[in-house]
Each structure stands twice: as structure tokens, then as C-alpha cells.
């Protein structure tokens, strides 16, 4: 690194002024970059949330429609069975019984889908939690950046590392409890008091 030496006091001041200006603009740039980086993470988290919500809404509409059709199918099979019995031929009765079994199985699958379709709520809560963590980390990093003298010549890698660790620790402490601990979509526990 080339060290510039001023010729006189005036030049010294000019040089110092230049350094301060460069220092400030670098700092400002640094913070803006950090802000933009954290903002882009939040934008991506929002995008995931929108995609998941959109998919869940569509799935719920599909679910309701299939459920309605299944009920109609079930009722129709019952009506045909009534019309066919007792004179109905054996093959027709057997076919209707098979239809009833299929209708019951579809209903069972739909019940299971109710449990699975709740994933949207869990994902949304986790995304909101992660977005809060990212925001807290950004705020803490910026605060420590403002308070520290990282730009000074004495700045070491260790000091930088300590600053980041401090920010992460504070962000961790400030973060709210994780609202979702489920690792899968199995039914949750039930407890009556």
C-alpha cells in the first residue's frame, strides 16, 4: 500500500478531508450493501411464502371440489343400488359394492389430506420467524459496525470476527422462540387438562 505524505499543513488537511470522505462513503456503501443483501433475503423469503400460500389455496380449492364430487359419487352409487335391488343382477350388485369400497377409500384419503394440507401454516410461521431473525441480525451487525472502529489501522481479523460473533449472539438472544418444532407432517400430540 502506498502511503501518501502531505507537503504542508494545508495539503495534510486536504488529504485528511479526502480520507474522511472516502471512509464515510465506504462505510455508507458497506451498510447499504448489507441492507440490500438482507433485504434481498427477505424478498426471497416473501416470494417463498407467496408461492406456498398460492399453492395451498389452490390445493384447498381442489380438495373441496374432489370432496364434493366424492360425496355426489357416493350418493349416486347408493341411489343406483336402491334402484337395482332386489331384482338387480348379481354382476351389477357386485359392481356397485366395488364402487362403494372405492368411494370409502377416497374419503379416507381425503381425511388424510386434511392433515397434510396444514403444511402451509407451518411453513408460513417458519418463514416469518426466519425473516425476523434475518432482520434482527442485520440491525445488530449495523449497530456493531457503527460502534466499532473496524476502519482503523488497528483493525484485525480477530476483531472483525468478534464483532460478527457478538452480533449473532445478540440476534440469537433477541430472536423470539421458534414457533414450529415439527420435523414432519405426522399428527401432533393431544392433551386434555
Amino acid at each position: 500500500m502506498v502511503e501518501m505524505q502531505p507537503d504542508d499543513g494545508k495539503a495534510d488537511n486536504q488529504y485528511s478531508d479526502q480520507l474522511v470522505t472516502v471512509g464515510l462513503s465506504n462505510e455508507a456503501l458497506c451498510n447499504t450493501e448489507a441492507d440490500e443483501y438482507f433485504m434481498s433475503i427477505k424478498v426471497e423469503l416473501n416470494q417463498i411464502d407467496r408461492l406456498v400460500s398460492d399453492a395451498v389455496n389452490n390445493l384447498v380449492i381442489n380438495f373441496r371440489y374432489i370432496s364434493k364430487l366424492t360425496k355426489s359419487h357416493h350418493d349416486m352409487v347408493l341411489a343406483i343400488e336402491k334402484m337395482a335391488a332386489p331384482e338387480g343382477s348379481k354382476p351389477i350388485i357386485e359392481l356397485l359394492e366395488k364402487q362403494m369400497i372405492i368411494a370409502d377409500k377416497i374419503e379416507q384419503e381425503l381425511e388424510m389430506a386434511i392433515t397434510s394440507l396444514q403444511f402451509g401454516d407451518l411453513v408460513t410461521q417458519l418463514l416469518a420467524h426466519t425473516a425476523r431473525q434475518v432482520e434482527t441480525l442485520n440491525i445488530e451487525l449495523q449497530r456493531i459496525d457503527r460502534q466499532s472502529n473496524w476502519k482503523s489501522e488497528k483493525t484485525t481479523l480477530q476483531a472483525t470476527h468478534e464483532g460478527i460473533s457478538k452480533a449473532v449472539n445478540i440476534a440469537n438472544t433477541k430472536s423470539k422462540r421458534k414457533p414450529v418444532v415439527q420435523q414432519g407432517m405426522q399428527m401432533g400430540d393431544i392433551e386434555l387438562f
Binding site: 381425511e111 386434511i114 392433515t115 397434510s116 396444514q118 403444511f119 401454516d121 407451518l122 415439527q182 407432517m185 405426522q186 399428527m187 401432533g188 400430540d189 393431544i190 392433551e191 386434555l192 387438562f193
Partner: peptide, 14 residues
């Protein structure tokens, strides 16, 4: 004063 606690996701039958 809660009567009970059900953890999501819920099973409709339960």
C-alpha cells in the same frame, strides 16, 4: 383455563 392442547397438524378423526 384451557380445556386441552392439540398440536398441529391435526387429524380430523382425532
Amino acid at each position: 383455563g384451557a380445556t386441552g392442547w392439540l398440536v398441529k397438524p391435526f387429524d380430523p378423526k382425532r
